[in-house]
Design a binder for these strands. Structure first.
Length: 275
DNA sequence: CTCCAGGCATATT
DNA sequence: AATATGCATGGA
């Protein structure tokens, strides 16, 4: 079925889907993106105003609500950008990636993906995640190029595997973390519902118990997988960007209270050669 | 060849 | 509490 949102702005699919917050989207030649989200195969295109999503989901009213939530279309990014632009450096960040948005992604997929991201680069992270899905995820259909596509494997499936089973991922030492995260989720020892009810420091503490999850990964999961925009702590990569961007310290108005500002800062810093 | 990638666990001080 | 080191893999 097709889901359509009118008058969506600002938005850049490339900055949003290919900036390192999600790892299952691939750009097509015409600027649209093909990806798998929560067991759906999706093709997304955007013409500067209309956001159109062709999804393999077999209809239902919930589908539109799902994508509205995924792209955080309830958040007024235009207003956020105005707010951030009051600070001259953040204004540069906004200008650098004016169409970036923070996606609301599945908690468990985000957790496993960012465990894989440890001391790793985006292209290889994508490769490992792809092999993870190909080998252990359910088939969800064929994409635009006719390739068979798989969903992200369930916690139960991954929890049933051994480290030897994961060797095909070529994930290196991150395999132990993948298994620990899957087992905790599968056994109900790490539940999205529980984390949602906790305040951010408590949720963060719970995430840090997972093997392979440190401050950086925990913060990424809080932001991308648990929607903790508000009291999101300044994490490792932002501190690094900060040192370059804000030698005299953090401007008081934005970053400590909004994850999106961190995305702006990161993308600005990453691609402008500041660090 | 070396260096490093959106770090973390562990050992050492 | 703070700092140092090894780590799997692959691209630059």
């Amino acid at each position: 079925m097709n889901v359509r949102f009118d008058d969506v702005a600002p938005l850049s699919l490339r900055d949003t889907l290919d900036c390192g917050q999600a790892f299952r989207w691939t750009a097509l030649d015409d600027g649209s993106f093909s990806g798998v989200v929560d067991g759906r195969l999706a093709m997304v295109s955007y013409d500067g105003s209309v956001l159109s999503i062709e999804t393999s989901a077999t209809s239902s009213a919930g589908e539109k609500a799902f994508w509205k939530n995924y792209f955080a279309l309830d958040i007024d990014y235009s207003a956020l950008q105005q707010e951030y632009s009051a600070d001259p450096t953040l204004a540069k960040c906004v200008r650098f990636a004016p169409g970036i948005r923070v996606l609301r992604q599945d908690f468990y997929e985000t957790l496993v993906s960012f465990i894989i991201s440890q001391n790793n680069n985006i292209s290889r992270i994508k490769g490992i995640v792809e092999r993870l899905c190909e080998n252990f995820g359910e088939e969800v259909g064929t994409d635009a190029t006719g390739r068979l596509v798989h969903a992200f494997p369930s916690p139960a499936k991954l929890a049933s595997l051994s480290l030897e089973d994961l060797a095909c991922l070529r994930a290196g030492y991150r395999d132990k973390g993948i298994l620990d995260a899957a087992r905790r989720v599968a056994e109900g020892r790490l539940r999205h519902d529980d984390l949602s009810r906790m305040d951010t420091p408590s949720a963060r503490k719970a995430l840090l118990e997972v093997y392979g999850v440190g401050p950086k990964v925990a913060d990424c999961v809080l932001l991308f997988g648990l929607g903790r925009f508000e009291s999101f702590p300044v994490d490792v990569w932002v501190r690094r960007a900060m040192a370059a961007l804000f030698p005299n310290g953090l401007p008081s108005n934005a970053v400590s209270t909004a994850g999106i500002a961190q995305q702006y800062i990161f993308n600005y810093a990453r691609t402008s050669g500041l660090w």
